[in-house]
Nucleic acid binder design. Structure first.
Lengths: 223, 223
DNA sequence: TTGCAATTCAAACACTTGTATGAAACTATC
DNA sequence: GATAGTTTCATACAAGTGTTTGAATTGCAA
């Protein structure tokens, strides 16, 4: 049994550095310095830099999917397979938002690492990322159970927009804070989640056919 | 007057390459090869790679802001200073979406370059990007004119979400297409714009205080 | 044409990157 | 405690990066 103290030290250091500074400007030498191991250790334990990144991504990706699905199942169990649409979307965006916003001590490098992945999409990751689609399909299915009358296209757009709002909030929380001079509180994670979910749900349920009427676009009064 | 044939060739090649492949893996040698100029030309004409990127960004940033504001003014002139909120948001997200989605021949490298900027945020750009806040504030002001009853915080979140949906749609249009097996048509740009705007407007006008009531969250029926 | 500045060019520079090597240190088994 | 296998380490390597250099070429005014 190999004493994988070095291995785990490298993984932890790499994840933190990638989460903080992105893949672009984190070198192997940065990682080994942070992990306090020798330069050659990465290639010895992982084979190459790319394989290190890939292992990191696979691990975290599975964990995130598991977390989302467990929240989803918990919500569906309450009502025998039909969770309210809010709960489905909350299971989708909650884990990421909770891990990335909120008080410092509660933020997980894992969640921030996954956001990096969603931003930069470096080659070793791009090859694996297809599995994400299958994962998201499970949520589309759950959304369909919540909103039986809703068309597939609307569900896809709704999920897409929900993820968009969640990810952008994480990615650009700084800009939002600056723009609003602190009036938008991104530290209150649960409030942010409710906000994202609520807008997404309105997009799913509120719109409908009315959206396609172009005559209305310039006719509405500014009130 | 310097014959800036080389200069413009470099700018065009660089913009296209950055738009296509990102800042991460485009080297000076790629650029000069595409522009068919000598390697030293970049440093001769621009001083450094970073200054080339900065010039590209400043130029395009000003152009995009100008385009947005001209759409906004056009919309506000119709009703003497109070455009419908839909028109304001359309002026915000329209230019980017039109330039990045839609038929190939109509896509602009400029718009795709700006999306890259919003994704990668390389150091020379990060230093300049603060001006963006001032630009966005003008839109917040216009939104306030459209929705006088709306609180500032809601306006900030509304603008934030609108940009989030627009940018994510551009960035991840491929995933949405795959996920929906082509059923979500991102080529119909005007429809996408209306969709983004409509959801954002619902978020601004539909929600209100009701959003804060937690009791409702699990109580809604799945039907 | 001559002369001079602006521009182009090939080559080299200094530096950083990920990876490979072979010796040293360690660990556990006999 | 000797030995074989695993892990660490300092060091070197090849490839690629942005930048610099100084000579060659061009373009244009006198």
């Amino acid at each position: 049994m190999p004493s994988d103290r070095t291995r785990t030290a490298i993984l932890a250091a790499a994840e933190r550095l990638y989460a903080d500074r992105g893949f672009g400007d984190v070198t192997l030498r940065d990682i080994v310095a942070a992990a306090d191991v020798n330069l050659a250790a990465v290639n010895y334990h992982f084979g190459s830099k790319d394989e290190l990144i890939a292992e990191l991504f696979v691990t975290r990706s599975l964990a995130l999917n598991r977390e989302r699905l467990s929240e989803l199942r918990a919500a569906e169990e309450v009502r025998g397979g039909r969770a309210p649409i809010e709960a489905v979307l909350r299971a989708l965006v909650g884990p990421t938002l909770r891990g990335c916003l909120g008080p410092d001590n509660q933020r997980s490098t894992a969640a921030r690492f996954m956001i990096r992945v969603s931003i930069e999409s470096v080659p070793p990751i791009r090859r694996i990322r297809n599995r994400e689609i299958d994962h998201l399909r499970k949520f589309v299915a759950a959304m369909a159970r919540s909103l039986p009358g809703c068309s597939d296209v609307e569900l896809y757009w709704g999920l897409h927009f929900a993820l968009a709002m969640a990810q952008q909030t994480v990615r650009d929380s700084e800009r939002l804070t600056k723009l609003s001079e602190g009036k938008c509180d991104v530290e209150d994670v649960e409030a942010v989640i409710e906000r994202v979910v609520s807008v997404a749900v309105m997009g799913l349920t509120g719109g409908g056919a009315e959206r396609k009427v172009p005559a209305r676009l310039l006719a509405r009064d500014a009130r």
